[in-house]
Amino acid sequence: MSPFRVLARSALAAALAAMPGCTSQTTATRLRAVGDLPSEVAVLPMVRTNLGPEIADLLRERIGGAFAARGYRRIDEAWIDQRLSQAGMQPQRSEWIDSDMRLVAIARSLGIAGVVVLEDFESDAVTTGVYNERSLHGRVRVIDVRRGETTWSYWVDSSAMGGALLQSGQIFDAIGDTFGGSLRAETVRFASLVSLAVAEEMPRARDEHRPGRRPVVDAVEATGDGAAAVAAPTTIEVAVRGTPDCRAFASLPGCLGRYPLSEESPGRYVGTLPVPRPATRVVVSVRDRFGVTSRAHFADVASGGVGGGT
């Protein structure tokens, strides 16, 4: 923020000095709202933002939660990220979308009815000693893929102002605001406030969708590499047949994490599972585009596999 802008804001705050109390507000300003929103939406990675990756992901999740809370079917963020990567996009970049037209074409090819674009999100902080302001603001817009245009767009802004100039009733709070607090914590709070404001402005989904059926795992082949169970990790080749168009994972039972498998042909997922300890079983699951997850499916590692213990 420029020094002139800081001065101007401080002057404005001085004019409001007679009004005690910390000011905090979250607003959603309508830019465009035409027709109904698509009942299924994918919230895309952010475009043009100064937020760190963790905060950007968190805000994206929260905005997705706002759509889900209003009855829209939300496409799993990890699924859409994977599909964008496979389409040659680089969603980790700040300017990864070069045009709405290209985005619409990709969304059509993936069978997505609506995309939510989060753009120009910025977090600002001004601390002058007597006047402080922290804010998070940006634009949320929905592109109706069938119509090929933006049909719903809001500018959202969440801010908190404080400091001795405004908080004349509670001076320690004002001092604490100036010298303490965490911008990161405040930004996380803003992310939730913004998502609540978005949910409040959003019309309820027109179509009430039925609970999604769980994807299924039909068959699993797990084959060890034949190496003896020694300290060095060995591998298990895993092939899964199940519901197509999902993400699939394999792991050793009891492990916290899981390895991603790749869909080499529709409904067939394969991958190489490193094994840091002897194992005779694997656990597999698949997750569809809406994040609906199959039941965990356990399978034995084929003979000649890894190790001899469990």
């Binding site: 990890a78 492990c255 994490g257 991603p260």
Partner: peptide, 11 residues
């Protein structure tokens, strides 16, 4: 691994 695969375990 970019946005292709998330949360690949490390030991």
């Amino acid at each position: 691994l970019g946005s292709l695969h998330r949360q690949i375990p490390m030991f």
